[in-house]
Write a protein that binds this DNA or RNA. Structure first.
Lengths: 147, 147
DNA sequence: GCGATTATATCGCAGAGCGATATAAATGCC
DNA sequence: GGCATTTATATCGCTCTGCGATATAATCGC
């Protein structure tokens, strides 16, 4: 309950962090559109490709990974299937479930995008860490337990 | 031109980072809606409150801070003005410009949200840093020059 | 078997973002 | 000063996105 008010500097730090984050997301959106994808479609493709071990990519699991309501994911998968990026397959054990798979087209479009994202992340990480550190009170590049 | 292909582990690391990011953004969206705001409206309020020193909050400047096209910001400000969150004021020196100001209501709603965001950022920063480090090759909490 | 739960789907709606285009003020050039 | 160019906002029509409410079907508990 301490610290009930933020200083001007803290509002600036919060705004600055969001600005950094937006620049990163903007890069991602532009990269996706440049590859002929909607930004959200790219997120689903990546989630499919980077699924944790042994987890089936059902609608519900994908909705959780992208932090969306399940019916939002249903609609997203509808649009992506219409563009031949993914395909639905009925679940084997539980017939209520629907498993989503990448199509060859979906597989093809991802590598270039992911390479570009890794490069961009490496490039902007320092700035991102700096503005995050300004908020959490850590000093970048030094010992952390000082406060 | 080295490293032209990503490993499965790297796809997973990318997906994991995006998942962390989405959880953070989701928290922010939920917090904004819980305060009776659209998520984007919250972003504009924060940008206004955390404006860098001596910069006038024109439509163009705001569009840059939120990484949106200017006409998207025009529409956003339209909707926010209709909800009495901000007000337009004609620019003094350049009469083409429009300066955006917070209304008392816009001022009132922000502090609680920003406090919650600072707390959340402090809470999730370690997980975020870890998944970012997995991509940039840094080892969290250890020496960094090892690779 | 049967009510409760879970997984996906459908519907109607509003916010968001974009490209194309428009308008008005400021600027550069002569 | 006059006029083309540039800059700052605004308007229009569109699609994607995301939600709540509701529906359907399979599974689970007992």
């Amino acid at each position: 309950m301490a610290d009930e008010r933020l200083t001007v500097a803290e509002y600036r730090a919060l705004a600055e962090f969001r600005c950094q984050l937006r620049r990163l997301l903007r890069f991602s959106e532009d990269a996706a559109r440049g590859a002929g994808l909607e930004p959200q479609h790219h997120q689903v493709l990546l989630a499919l490709r980077g699924m944790p071990d042994g987890t089936a990519a059902t609608i519900g699991v994908l909705a959780d990974r992208l932090q969306l309501r399940h019916h939002t994911m249903v609609e997203l998968i509808d649009r992506m299937a219409a563009r031949n990026l993914v395909r639905r397959r009925p679940g084997t054990t539980d017939r209520r479930q629907v498993v989503v798979r990448l199509t060859p087209r979906g597989e093809r479009v991802l590598p270039r995008l992911s390479l570009a994202h890794r490069a961009e992340l490496r490039a902007v990480a320092p700035a991102l860490l700096r503005s995050l550190a300004a908020l959490t009170g850590d000093r970048p590049g030094r010992a952390v337990r000082g406060r």
